[in-house]
């Protein structure tokens, strides 16, 4: 099913490209090359997939709990801000202390930022759809303030902070590529969230709340606590994503540190029916789409923002197919 959705999305986008005066038969091969031509390009794909997997796996947990968390973007920012703060201020700690500290700090701040929206939901019945989006804006604007104000490297320079201490940099494991252990951490987190959701009693509670909160409440399950928990873990994963982006790739914080990972991650999770472990595949796929579209922009001047639209169409195809899945399967089996 997800494969069909991708194909449909690429076909629709091909029409858009044609209308806009580009040749999809020229553009798509370049896109493919931009992602899979050699070790270097593929390692870049995995680097882009790293935050997508972390955020997507986290979101799958909240979606499974019935919460429409659209706030991964803001939680990512929260994580990257705190990670940068720690990375700069404790630069002289040894690596084996500093790296866990930075990652933990990032995860914790993401979790708290997400729990704020969760708290507003369970305490005031404020729709998380709106609150998470608003908290995204607050986090992004606050980051903008930090990098042009108190945390700016120099008052005349770019809107960015100084570099974090070298001890906080995540080790690379496949030189000469930039691939760092953050990718492995993402795989581990996706696996852990999968186990939590499907193998533990905590995950059972979260899923029960997500499908039928009323029945869960009648069965004595504390719905509010499960919502807060799901938000905390999901936000923690997103915050960790922000921390890994800073410590593994950028080594500093700047204004637009996320090109929209938080929103891409929604598609990453939905594409695989909110299965945390499968977000590894969809994360890599969307990473490849991004890498490929950048190549497309460089070579053919096709604006890479098109990727957002492609992802939106992927979501629409997925939901449409899931509704008609039985009918489509029947149609195929009858042939």
């Amino acid at each position: 099913m997800p494969v069909i959705a991708i194909v449909v999305a690429l076909l629709v986008s091909a029409v858009v490209l044609l209308v806009a005066g580009y040749d999809p038969l020229e553009a798509y091969p370049i896109m493919w090359k931009g992602a899979f031509s050699d070790q270097r390009t593929f390692s870049e794909v995995l680097l882009k997939a790293t935050p997508l997997i972390l955020l997507g796996a986290g979101l799958s947990l909240t979606f499974r709990c019935g919460i429409v968390n659209l706030g991964a973007e803001g939680q990512f920012y929260a994580g990257s801000v705190v990670a940068t703060l720690i990375g700069i201020n404790f630069a002289n700690l040894p690596s084996y202390l500093l790296i866990p500290l930075v990652l933990l700090g990032g995860a914790l701040s993401g979790a708290l930022w997400a729990m704020l929206a969760g708290y507003l939901k369970v305490r005031f019945n404020a729709s998380e759809v709106v609150t998470t989006i608003m908290l995204n804006y607050v986090a992004i604007i606050f980051t903008g303030y930090l990098v042009t104000g108190p945390m700016q490297e120099s008052k005349v320079g770019f809107p960015q902070t100084a570099q974090i201490g070298e001890a906080a940099w995540l080790p690379r494991f496949l030189p000469p590529t930039r691939l760092h252990i953050g990718f492995l951490i993402a795989l581990l987190v996706a696996l852990l969230i999968y186990i939590l959701l499907f193998k533990t009693s905590t995950g059972y509670g979260i899923r029960a709340v997500g499908i039928n909160a009323e029945a869960a409440r009648y069965a004595g399950i504390n719905v509010r606590r499960n919502i807060l928990l799901a938000m905390a873990i999901s936000g923690g994963a997103a915050g960790l994503g922000g921390a890994i982006e800073v410590t593994g790739l950028t080594y500093r914080l700047f204004q637009m540190i996320s090109p929209g990972y938080g929103f891409d991650a929604i598609a990453v999770s939905l594409l695989v029916n909110n299965n945390p472990i499968a977000t590894v595949l969809s994360g890599i796929l969307f990473g490849a789409l991004r890498s490929g579209s950048e190549m497309m922009q460089m070579n053919l001047k096709v604006p890479s923002v098109l990727v957002s639209a492609i992802q939106g169409i992927v979501i629409l195809s997925v939901v449409a197919f899931s509704v008609y899945r039985d009918k489509i399967l029947k149609w195929f089996t009858e042939r």
């Binding site: 059972y204 029960a208 499908i211 029945a215 869960a216 069965a219 399950i221």
Partner: peptide, 18 residues
């Protein structure tokens, strides 16, 4: 209030004591 329809029989049976 009583059941989680998409859950299996086994899953519904542990709803309170999971």
């Amino acid at each position: 209030m009583g059941v989680v329809l998409p859950f299996t029989i086994a899953e519904n049976i542990i709803l309170e004591d999971y």
